[in-house]
């Protein structure tokens, strides 16, 4: 197994764990955590391709990962703000109980 392939497999496993969590948990915050794990798996792929790619001195993959981290931080802030507001409105963070768009 080459180093790049093992990095990609670890990232694939991390992505699948995040996806499984996002699809199976009831708590909205844990669904957001699953999405964060998926984003992190993508970052690991970017870094691995940068490290084992032909031109690491161009910094392309590293920059992509850094911008991706910044976007993920913005996503987490907005997502958790939404969860707090939904909890204030519906008094629950259980996604199975929130099956209507009408308040």
């Amino acid at each position: 197994m080459t180093p790049l392939a093992s990095c990609l497999l670890v990232a694939a496993l991390l992505f699948s764990i995040g996806l499984a969590g996002a699809l199976t948990r009831r708590n909205a915050i844990l669904v957001l955590i699953g999405i964060e794990l998926m984003l992190n798996a993508a970052n690991l792929n970017l870094i691995a391709f940068w490290r084992y790619g032909p031109h690491p001195e161009l910094l392309t993959g590293m920059m992509f990962a850094i911008f991706s981290i910044a976007i993920a931080a913005a996503e987490a802030a907005v997502g958790l703000g939404l969860v707090i507001q939904i909890h204030r409105h519906a008094h629950t963070t259980d996604l199975d109980a929130m099956n209507r768009m009408k308040g």
């Binding site: 990609l8 764990i17 032909p54």
Partner: peptide
């Protein structure tokens, strides 16, 4: 259903990685 979807995604991803091991660049 969520677990099955996640397992399917992992199977597809790992199949793709293992198929392309030879063509992946590997600068050390």
């Amino acid at each position: 259903a969520g677990l099955v979807i996640a397992a399917g995604v992992f199977a597809a991803l790992s199949w793709a990685v293992l198929q392309s091991v030879r063509v992946l660049s590997n600068e050390t």
